[in-house]
């Protein structure tokens, strides 16, 4: 049983125009066994949330906390986070030339478990997982993500998730760029992991179509760097119907309110000082 708690998370990134705040106070709790969908329009900061939790050096956390079972995730290095149980299925998996899939999987599994997997069961586990995801066994000897198609890369991400058995899995737009067949295969893989009951799943998506295959209990609408509305699966249906317009309009109004709050704080500050 694991719990990922995100509290008031503010994250900024350095751009050519200077520092830009992307996450503006995210609150979210994910427990193992739960599946959460984070839905939002392009540029709302969904991917930033995913990469910030995983610890990508490009993003700077300026405020807030992320804890996993009370442990301070933000104090951990990228690999420590992974060993603590955080898994990020990336939207754009990276090619690692000269490192074979089988070597990579075994090295990662050894790092996560703290010991090398038992050879016989491991080979079988890898083979079975590859078969279920319809990954050609020849991929084991290919270099990580090198020359993989978009769909192959996404299936390989899910393969890793199945084998590494994280306690919190963040899937960053895993559905993007997939045709219907690939989407179904990938979704089945995710559902197998969810069915184990051991993982808390954070499904980040722009579209609702993956939710036909993976059923979240919680849906969060993400606009302008924060969660603006939360609900159950019915919220996804509404988004399917009406898109993000209502939330975008509300966010515009909220941004103005936010400006007023800012002024209030400024007036308070001298008293504190």
């Amino acid at each position: 049983m694991a719990t990922l708690e995100i509290r008031n998370l503010h994250v900024s990134v350095e751009t050519e125009q200077g520092t830009k705040e992307i996450l503006r106070g995210v609150d979210l709790t994910v427990r193992s066994g739960e599946t959460h969908a984070i839905m939002g329009p392009n540029g709302s900061g969904k991917s930033t949330l995913a990469y910030s939790i995983a610890g990508h050096p490009k993003y700077t956390v300026t405020e807030g906390t992320v804890t996993l079972d009370g442990e301070d995730v933000l104090a951990m290095s990228v690999d420590e986070r992974a060993r603590a149980g955080v898994f990020l299925a990336m939207q754009y998996p990276v090619e690692v030339p000269g490192v074979t899939v089988s070597n990579f999987l075994r090295t990662a599994k050894t790092a996560i478990d703290g010991q090398a997997p038992k050879l016989r069961t491991w080979v079988k586990d890898v083979k079975n997982a590859m078969t279920e995801l319809k990954i050609d066994p020849a991929f084991a000897e290919r270099n990580v993500n090198e020359g993989f198609s978009g769909g192959e890369k996404k299936r390989f991400e899910i393969l890793q998730m199945e084998l590494l058995k994280p306690s919190v899995a963040i899937l960053d737009e895993t559905d993007s760029g997939l045709d219907v067949d690939a989407l179904r295969i990938v979704s089945e893989g995710v559902n197998r992991v969810i069915a184990s009951g051991d993982v808390g799943c954070l499904l980040i998506t722009h579209y609702t179509r993956i939710l036909r295959y993976i059923k979240p209990q919680f849906v969060h609408v993400f606009v302008n760097g924060r969660v603006v509305e939360e609900g159950g699966p019915e919220l996804a249906d509404e988004l399917e119907e009406n898109g993000y317009d209502r939330f975008l309009a509300a966010a515009g109004a909220a941004a103005e309110t936010g400006a007023v709050e800012q002024v209030d704080q400024v007036t308070v500050e001298p008293a504190n000082a």
Binding site: A54, G55, H56, P57, S77, V78, D79, R81, A82, R83, F87, L88, M90, P93, V94, E95, V96, F104, T107, A108, A111, I112, V144, Q160, L164
Partner: peptide, 12 residues
């Protein structure tokens, strides 16, 4: 590349 490998638990 380093981030990808580290995100799978592999020490730096």
């Amino acid at each position: 590349q380093l981030f990808y490998l580290q995100a799978r638990g592999i020490p730096e």
